[in-house]
Protein backbone atom coordinates (compact mmCIF):
# COMPACT_ATOMS: atom_id res chain seq x y z
CA UNK A 1 0.00 0.00 0.00
CA UNK A 2 2.01 2.96 -1.22
CA UNK A 3 2.08 6.22 0.75
CA UNK A 4 -0.77 5.39 3.18
CA UNK A 5 1.66 5.13 6.10
CA UNK A 6 3.15 8.46 5.07
CA UNK A 7 -0.26 10.14 5.25
CA UNK A 8 -0.71 9.02 8.85
CA UNK A 9 2.19 11.23 9.88
CA UNK A 10 0.20 14.36 9.04
CA UNK A 11 -3.11 15.76 10.21
CA UNK A 12 -4.13 17.49 6.98
CA UNK A 13 -3.84 16.43 3.37
CA UNK A 14 -4.91 17.88 0.08
CA UNK A 15 -5.10 16.12 -3.25
CA UNK A 16 -4.52 18.33 -6.24
CA UNK A 17 -4.94 17.49 -9.89
CA UNK A 18 -2.88 19.31 -12.50
CA UNK A 19 -5.79 19.15 -14.92
CA UNK A 20 -9.32 17.82 -14.96
CA UNK A 21 -9.62 14.04 -15.45
CA UNK A 22 -6.17 13.19 -14.22
CA UNK A 23 -7.50 10.63 -11.77
CA UNK A 24 -7.74 12.75 -8.67
CA UNK A 25 -10.96 11.11 -7.54
CA UNK A 26 -9.57 7.59 -7.98
CA UNK A 27 -6.62 8.68 -5.94
CA UNK A 28 -8.93 9.98 -3.21
CA UNK A 29 -10.96 6.76 -3.28
CA UNK A 30 -7.74 4.78 -3.00
CA UNK A 31 -6.66 6.68 0.10
CA UNK A 32 -10.10 6.59 1.71
CA UNK A 33 -10.40 2.86 1.17
CA UNK A 34 -7.07 2.11 2.81
CA UNK A 35 -6.63 4.51 5.71
CA UNK A 36 -6.92 2.59 9.00
CA UNK A 37 -10.16 4.13 10.28
CA UNK A 38 -10.09 2.27 13.58
CA UNK A 39 -7.01 4.21 14.55
CA UNK A 40 -7.72 7.61 13.01
CA UNK A 41 -10.91 9.56 12.47
CA UNK A 42 -11.03 10.97 8.95
CA UNK A 43 -12.95 13.99 7.66
CA UNK A 44 -13.17 14.66 3.94
CA UNK A 45 -14.53 17.38 1.72
CA UNK A 46 -14.10 18.66 -1.79
CA UNK A 47 -13.62 22.21 -2.98
CA UNK A 48 -16.47 23.96 -4.70
CA UNK A 49 -18.42 21.92 -7.22
CA UNK A 50 -15.68 19.41 -7.92
CA UNK A 51 -17.17 15.97 -7.50
CA UNK A 52 -20.35 16.12 -9.55
CA UNK A 53 -21.24 12.83 -11.17
CA UNK A 54 -20.52 14.21 -14.64
CA UNK A 55 -17.62 16.48 -15.39
CA UNK A 56 -19.06 19.85 -16.40
CA UNK A 57 -16.45 20.53 -19.06
CA UNK A 58 -15.86 17.23 -20.82
CA UNK A 59 -19.04 15.39 -19.82
CA UNK A 60 -17.05 12.28 -18.94
CA UNK A 61 -18.33 10.21 -16.06
CA UNK A 62 -16.68 11.00 -12.78
CA UNK A 63 -16.66 8.36 -10.08
CA UNK A 64 -18.45 9.21 -6.87
CA UNK A 65 -16.52 9.04 -3.65
CA UNK A 66 -16.96 5.81 -1.70
CA UNK A 67 -16.96 6.45 2.03
CA UNK A 68 -16.58 3.86 4.76
CA UNK A 69 -18.33 3.71 8.09
CA UNK A 70 -17.15 6.31 10.58
CA UNK A 71 -15.86 8.87 8.08
CA UNK A 72 -17.01 12.47 8.50
CA UNK A 73 -17.82 14.21 5.23
CA UNK A 74 -18.96 17.70 4.30
CA UNK A 75 -20.99 18.46 1.21
CA UNK A 76 -23.78 20.71 -0.01
CA UNK A 77 -27.39 20.20 1.06
CA UNK A 78 -28.30 19.20 -2.49
CA UNK A 79 -25.70 16.42 -2.62
CA UNK A 80 -26.42 15.34 0.93
CA UNK A 81 -29.99 14.60 -0.12
CA UNK A 82 -28.70 12.55 -3.09
CA UNK A 83 -26.30 10.45 -1.03
CA UNK A 84 -26.24 6.68 -1.57
CA UNK A 85 -25.19 5.69 1.92
CA UNK A 86 -26.63 5.75 5.42
CA UNK A 87 -25.34 8.70 7.38
CA UNK A 88 -26.06 10.77 10.43
CA UNK A 89 -26.26 14.55 10.04
CA UNK A 90 -24.03 16.09 12.68
CA UNK A 91 -23.60 19.74 11.70
CA UNK A 92 -25.02 22.44 9.45
CA UNK A 93 -22.33 25.02 8.82
CA UNK A 94 -22.78 28.68 7.93
CA UNK A 95 -20.98 28.24 4.60
CA UNK A 96 -23.21 28.64 1.57
CA UNK A 97 -22.81 27.65 -2.05
CA UNK A 98 -25.01 27.54 -5.10
CA UNK A 99 -25.97 24.02 -4.01
CA UNK A 100 -27.11 25.16 -0.57
CA UNK A 101 -25.44 25.18 2.82
CA UNK A 102 -22.49 22.93 3.54
CA UNK A 103 -23.50 20.18 5.95
CA UNK A 104 -21.44 17.53 7.71
CA UNK A 105 -22.48 13.91 8.04
CA UNK A 106 -21.01 10.84 9.66
CA UNK A 107 -21.20 7.59 7.69
CA UNK A 108 -23.17 4.83 9.44
CA UNK A 109 -23.11 2.35 6.55
CA UNK A 110 -20.59 2.74 3.72
CA UNK A 111 -21.65 3.95 0.29
CA UNK A 112 -21.27 6.67 -2.28
CA UNK A 113 -21.71 10.39 -2.13
CA UNK A 114 -20.82 13.43 -4.20
CA UNK A 115 -18.77 16.00 -2.36
CA UNK A 116 -18.97 19.76 -2.74
CA UNK A 117 -17.76 21.65 0.27
CA UNK A 118 -16.39 25.07 1.17
CA UNK A 119 -14.76 27.04 -1.61
CA UNK A 120 -12.39 29.61 -0.13
CA UNK A 121 -9.30 29.47 2.04
CA UNK A 122 -10.93 31.06 5.11
CA UNK A 123 -13.95 28.77 4.68
CA UNK A 124 -11.67 25.71 4.48
CA UNK A 125 -9.87 26.82 7.64
CA UNK A 126 -13.23 27.11 9.38
CA UNK A 127 -14.19 23.68 8.04
CA UNK A 128 -11.01 22.14 9.45
CA UNK A 129 -11.73 23.70 12.85
CA UNK A 130 -15.33 22.48 12.80
CA UNK A 131 -14.53 18.86 11.94
CA UNK A 132 -11.67 18.79 14.46
CA UNK A 133 -14.24 19.83 17.07
CA UNK A 134 -16.26 16.80 15.93
CA UNK A 135 -13.25 14.59 16.58
CA UNK A 136 -11.47 14.35 13.22
CA UNK A 137 -7.75 13.49 13.36
CA UNK A 138 -7.02 13.79 9.64
CA UNK A 139 -8.64 16.25 7.26
CA UNK A 140 -8.54 15.48 3.57
CA UNK A 141 -9.39 18.07 0.94
CA UNK A 142 -10.13 17.10 -2.62
CA UNK A 143 -8.64 20.08 -4.41
CA UNK A 144 -9.02 21.62 -7.83
CA UNK A 145 -6.32 22.86 -10.17
CA UNK A 146 -8.23 26.06 -10.88
CA UNK A 147 -7.99 26.66 -7.17
CA UNK A 148 -4.41 25.61 -6.57
CA UNK A 149 -4.14 28.28 -3.86
CA UNK A 150 -6.48 26.13 -1.76
CA UNK A 151 -3.71 23.54 -1.55
CA UNK A 152 -1.63 26.08 0.31
CA UNK A 153 0.37 24.90 3.31
CA UNK A 154 -1.76 27.21 5.44
CA UNK A 155 -4.56 24.67 4.85
CA UNK A 156 -2.78 21.35 4.42
CA UNK A 157 0.50 20.00 5.75
CA UNK A 158 0.77 17.27 3.17
CA UNK A 159 -0.16 16.97 -0.44
CA UNK A 160 -0.62 14.44 -3.22
CA UNK A 161 -0.32 15.52 -6.81
CA UNK A 162 -2.29 13.91 -9.55
CA UNK A 163 -1.30 14.23 -13.19
CA UNK A 164 -2.00 12.39 -16.45
CA UNK A 165 -2.72 12.24 -20.14
CA UNK A 166 -5.40 14.90 -19.79
CA UNK A 167 -2.62 17.42 -19.14
CA UNK A 168 -0.72 16.46 -22.28
CA UNK A 169 -0.77 13.45 -24.62
CA UNK A 170 2.96 13.88 -25.18
CA UNK A 171 4.92 12.01 -22.54
CA UNK A 172 7.81 14.46 -22.62
CA UNK A 173 5.59 17.51 -22.27
CA UNK A 174 3.62 15.81 -19.51
CA UNK A 175 6.79 14.95 -17.63
CA UNK A 176 8.22 18.44 -18.08
CA UNK A 177 5.06 20.20 -16.90
CA UNK A 178 4.70 17.91 -13.90
CA UNK A 179 8.34 18.27 -13.00
CA UNK A 180 8.01 22.05 -12.96
CA UNK A 181 5.11 21.97 -10.48
CA UNK A 182 6.95 19.45 -8.31
CA UNK A 183 9.97 21.73 -8.32
CA UNK A 184 7.88 24.66 -7.13
CA UNK A 185 6.23 22.58 -4.41
CA UNK A 186 9.65 21.50 -3.21
CA UNK A 187 11.26 24.95 -3.13
CA UNK A 188 13.33 25.27 0.04
CA UNK A 189 11.99 27.07 3.10
CA UNK A 190 13.78 30.05 4.60
CA UNK A 191 15.60 30.03 7.94
CA UNK A 192 13.48 30.29 11.02
CA UNK A 193 14.54 33.85 11.86
CA UNK A 194 13.50 35.00 8.40
CA UNK A 195 10.20 33.15 8.74
CA UNK A 196 9.50 34.94 12.02
CA UNK A 197 10.40 38.28 10.47
CA UNK A 198 8.09 37.89 7.48
CA UNK A 199 5.35 35.58 8.73
CA UNK A 200 2.89 38.39 9.52
CA UNK A 201 3.73 40.70 6.60
CA UNK A 202 0.48 40.78 4.63
CA UNK A 203 1.31 43.07 1.72
CA UNK A 204 3.97 44.98 -0.17
CA UNK A 205 7.46 44.10 -1.34
CA UNK A 206 10.21 43.98 1.27
CA UNK A 207 13.97 43.63 1.26
CA UNK A 208 15.96 42.01 4.05
CA UNK A 209 19.57 43.16 4.48
CA UNK A 210 22.64 41.32 5.82
CA UNK A 211 21.75 42.30 9.39
CA UNK A 212 18.35 40.71 9.07
CA UNK A 213 16.46 44.00 8.98
CA UNK A 214 13.36 44.39 6.79
CA UNK A 215 13.22 47.39 4.44
CA UNK A 216 10.09 48.45 2.60
CA UNK A 217 10.95 48.64 -1.10
CA UNK A 218 8.06 51.03 -1.67
CA UNK A 219 5.88 48.82 -3.89
CA UNK A 220 2.30 48.01 -3.12
CA UNK A 221 2.76 44.60 -4.69
CA UNK A 222 4.99 42.85 -7.17
CA UNK A 223 2.28 43.54 -9.76
CA UNK A 224 2.95 47.28 -9.43
CA UNK A 225 6.52 47.06 -10.66
CA UNK A 226 7.46 49.17 -13.70
CA UNK A 227 10.78 50.00 -15.36
CA UNK A 228 11.83 52.74 -12.99
CA UNK A 229 10.38 51.57 -9.76
CA UNK A 230 12.37 48.65 -8.44
CA UNK A 231 15.56 49.83 -6.78
CA UNK A 232 17.30 47.19 -4.75
CA UNK A 233 19.82 48.55 -2.24
CA UNK A 234 23.22 46.84 -2.46
CA UNK A 235 23.12 45.17 0.95
CA UNK A 236 19.78 43.44 0.36
CA UNK A 237 20.01 39.62 0.55
CA UNK A 238 16.34 38.66 0.36
CA UNK A 239 13.34 40.13 -1.42
CA UNK A 240 9.97 39.11 -0.03
CA UNK A 241 6.80 39.67 -1.99
CA UNK A 242 3.72 39.09 0.11
CA UNK A 243 1.35 38.63 -2.85
CA UNK A 244 1.71 36.91 -6.20
CA UNK A 245 5.11 36.50 -7.85
CA UNK A 246 4.79 37.32 -11.55
CA UNK A 247 6.90 37.11 -14.72
CA UNK A 248 7.39 40.88 -14.92
CA UNK A 249 8.67 41.09 -11.39
CA UNK A 250 10.97 38.12 -11.76
CA UNK A 251 12.43 39.50 -14.99
CA UNK A 252 12.98 42.85 -13.27
CA UNK A 253 14.90 41.20 -10.46
CA UNK A 254 16.86 38.98 -12.87
CA UNK A 255 17.95 42.02 -14.90
CA UNK A 256 19.59 43.58 -11.81
CA UNK A 257 23.33 43.19 -11.26
CA UNK A 258 23.33 41.36 -7.94
CA UNK A 259 20.93 38.55 -8.80
CA UNK A 260 23.48 35.89 -7.79
CA UNK A 261 23.49 37.14 -4.20
CA UNK A 262 19.73 37.49 -3.98
CA UNK A 263 16.99 35.11 -2.86
CA UNK A 264 13.38 35.84 -3.74
CA UNK A 265 10.97 34.80 -0.99
CA UNK A 266 7.22 34.09 -1.34
CA UNK A 267 4.71 32.84 1.20
CA UNK A 268 4.26 29.46 -0.47
CA UNK A 269 4.36 27.86 -3.92
CA UNK A 270 0.72 28.76 -4.67
CA UNK A 271 1.80 32.42 -4.89
CA UNK A 272 4.08 31.70 -7.85
CA UNK A 273 2.60 32.57 -11.22
CA UNK A 274 5.65 32.30 -13.43
CA UNK A 275 6.07 30.87 -16.87
CA UNK A 276 8.42 27.88 -16.82
CA UNK A 277 10.88 29.46 -19.28
CA UNK A 278 11.13 32.64 -17.22
CA UNK A 279 11.75 30.57 -14.13
CA UNK A 280 14.44 28.50 -15.85
CA UNK A 281 16.21 31.66 -17.11
CA UNK A 282 16.09 33.11 -13.62
CA UNK A 283 17.60 30.00 -12.06
CA UNK A 284 20.16 29.79 -14.87
CA UNK A 285 21.37 33.33 -14.16
CA UNK A 286 21.94 32.32 -10.54
CA UNK A 287 18.64 33.44 -8.99
CA UNK A 288 17.01 31.55 -6.15
CA UNK A 289 13.46 31.34 -4.83
CA UNK A 290 12.51 30.21 -1.31
CA UNK A 291 9.21 29.92 0.54
CA UNK A 292 8.03 30.68 4.07
CA UNK A 293 5.80 27.62 4.26
CA UNK A 294 5.87 24.36 2.42
CA UNK A 295 3.55 21.40 2.04
CA UNK A 296 5.15 18.01 2.12
CA UNK A 297 4.59 16.34 -1.25
CA UNK A 298 3.94 12.68 -0.48
CA UNK A 299 3.44 11.17 -3.92
CA UNK A 300 2.47 11.72 -7.52
CA UNK A 301 -0.38 9.70 -9.01
CA UNK A 302 -0.98 9.33 -12.72
CA UNK A 303 -3.89 8.55 -14.99
CA UNK A 304 -2.61 7.51 -18.43
CA UNK A 305 -6.08 7.85 -20.01
CA UNK A 306 -7.14 11.19 -21.46
CA UNK A 307 -10.86 12.13 -21.69
CA UNK A 308 -10.60 11.96 -25.52
CA UNK A 309 -9.67 8.29 -25.26
CA UNK A 310 -5.96 8.69 -25.82
CA UNK A 311 -3.96 6.26 -23.67
CA UNK A 312 -0.31 6.55 -22.70
CA UNK A 313 1.74 3.56 -21.60
CA UNK A 314 1.34 3.58 -17.86
CA UNK A 315 4.63 1.84 -17.05
CA UNK A 316 6.72 4.06 -19.29
CA UNK A 317 5.03 7.17 -17.92
CA UNK A 318 5.55 6.08 -14.31
CA UNK A 319 9.15 5.21 -14.91
CA UNK A 320 9.96 8.38 -16.78
CA UNK A 321 8.30 10.61 -14.20
CA UNK A 322 10.01 8.82 -11.33
CA UNK A 323 13.38 9.29 -13.01
CA UNK A 324 12.86 12.97 -13.71
CA UNK A 325 11.25 14.17 -10.50
CA UNK A 326 12.87 11.73 -8.11
CA UNK A 327 9.56 10.99 -6.39
CA UNK A 328 7.37 7.91 -6.00
CA UNK A 329 4.84 7.76 -8.86
CA UNK A 330 1.77 5.48 -8.92
CA UNK A 331 -0.92 4.45 -11.34
CA UNK A 332 -3.64 3.73 -8.81
CA UNK A 333 -6.25 2.36 -11.23
CA UNK A 334 -4.02 -0.02 -13.14
CA UNK A 335 -2.18 -1.45 -10.19
CA UNK A 336 -5.12 -1.34 -7.74
CA UNK A 337 -2.69 -2.01 -4.88
CA UNK A 338 -5.10 -4.41 -3.26
CA UNK A 339 -4.85 -5.03 0.38
Amino acid sequence: MPFIKEILKYDSLSIVGLEKNVGKTECLNYILSRLPLQARKVAVTSIGIDGESKDQVTATKKPEIYLREGVLFSTSETYYKKRKLVSELVDITNERSSLGRVVTGKVRIGGKVMLSGPSSNPALSRWIRSVRALGADITIIDGAISRLSLASPAISQAMILSTGAALSSNVNTLVRKTKYVVELINLPTVHEHLFKLLEHVENGVWGVDCDGKAVDLGLRSSLAVTASELKIPADIKYIYTAGALTDTFLKKVASGAGVKDLTLVVRDFTKIFIDEMVYRNFVHSGGRIAVLQKSRLLAVCINPVAPNGFVLDSDILCEKLRETIGFPVYDIVKNRYDI
Binding site: S33, L37, Q38, E69, S87, D91, R108
Partner: peptide
Protein backbone atom coordinates in the same frame (compact mmCIF):
# COMPACT_ATOMS: atom_id res chain seq x y z
CA UNK B 1 -27.69 17.18 18.46
CA UNK B 2 -27.36 14.99 15.38
CA UNK B 3 -29.97 13.25 13.30
CA UNK B 4 -30.63 10.40 10.93
CA UNK B 5 -33.47 7.99 10.34
CA UNK B 6 -32.62 5.72 13.26
CA UNK B 7 -32.88 1.93 13.04
CA UNK B 8 -35.41 1.94 15.86
CA UNK B 9 -38.00 3.77 13.70
CA UNK B 10 -38.69 0.60 11.72
CA UNK B 11 -37.87 -3.07 12.19
CA UNK B 12 -37.64 -3.66 8.47
CA UNK B 13 -35.24 -0.74 8.12
CA UNK B 14 -33.03 -2.19 10.85
CA UNK B 15 -33.09 -5.53 9.04
CA UNK B 16 -32.17 -4.00 5.66
CA UNK B 17 -29.32 -2.11 7.23
CA UNK B 18 -28.03 -5.22 8.93
CA UNK B 19 -27.80 -6.85 5.52
CA UNK B 20 -26.10 -3.79 4.04
CA UNK B 21 -23.57 -3.81 6.80
CA UNK B 22 -22.87 -7.47 6.25
CA UNK B 23 -21.75 -6.53 2.75
CA UNK B 24 -19.77 -3.38 3.49
CA UNK B 25 -18.23 -4.42 6.80
CA UNK B 26 -15.89 -1.68 7.87
CA UNK B 27 -14.78 -1.20 4.30
CA UNK B 28 -11.63 -3.20 4.78
Amino acid sequence: PSFYIYDSYSEELAEVRKRMKAITGFGE
